[in-house]
Design a binder for these strands. Structure first.
Lengths: 120, 120
DNA sequence: TATTTGTGTAACCGAATGATTACATTTATA
DNA sequence: TATAAATGTAATCATTCGGTTACACAAATA
């Protein structure tokens, strides 16, 4: 019985649940955008999209599992509150490549400048 | 016949292919990390992972489709070259929430300082 | 108390993901 | 030229994703 529960849990929770997964979907990025202004109930979030409310519920569930949002139950309404600090790992991951792309963009601009001065 | 080709193309290319999708997978993030040091051949990339070479080939294909890497064919070897500037949209997306998380972290630090001074 | 409202979730579906093995193709080399 | 090496890809598989509709349930309200 214990084994059964364990296996079930493993199957149910073996999916990747990290912030990179959370922001991979455009709908979830939009939800994050909405919640960054103010906490919203599930229905208020859903109003901003064409897809069904249960679909939004599922996206919110994934955001919860990735710990990007907290919930605050007020009676029968559930407010979703963003935890912006959970995005920081993405910032650090991307930041480590900043030097790389700045070099590349700089060298491209340098190339353009060279080209322009030659054509004068 | 034309219809058939069209439908096939649509089915084959309807998947999300953007930089957020590219970095959603941990293996692909590691590949980006490797390639940020130097261009590597497919086999050289694959040596760094436990999974099969075809699996790596597929990840590289996705990175190509997301335009994160370029390829440089040298005889029978294919070098993968990173295009770090393609990560910039992620940087801008995440950067817009910086103020939000800094405020939150600041207020938490303020709270800790208050707590500490009261316990003196 | 009966009903409406806000929300979650189960069942289902088609497509994508991420892996495998087996095979094809091109290029270098013995 | 025969073989080895580097790579891509087809076929297959189990799982996840992202959506739907239908239903359940608790809380507010008429």
């Amino acid at each position: 019985m214990i084994t059964f529960i364990f296996v079930t849990k493993r199957l149910l929770f073996d999916m990747r649940r990290d912030v990179f997964q959370a922001i991979a979907d455009p709908v979830r990025r939009d939800i994050i955008g909405l919640l960054s202004n103010e906490p919203l109930t599930v229905n208020m979030v859903a109003e901003n999209f064409e897809i069904s409310r249960p679909a939004i519920s599922k996206h919110l569930k994934i955001l919860k599992e990735c710990d990007i949002i907290d919930i605050d139950k007020q009676g029968r309404e559930i407010y979703c509150i963003i935890k912006p600090e959970k995005l920081v790992p993405v910032f650090f991951w991307i930041e480590q490549y900043r030097k790389l792309w700045e070099e590349k963009i700089d060298s491209f601009e340098h190339y353009l400048n060279e080209l322009q001065s030659k054509n004068k």
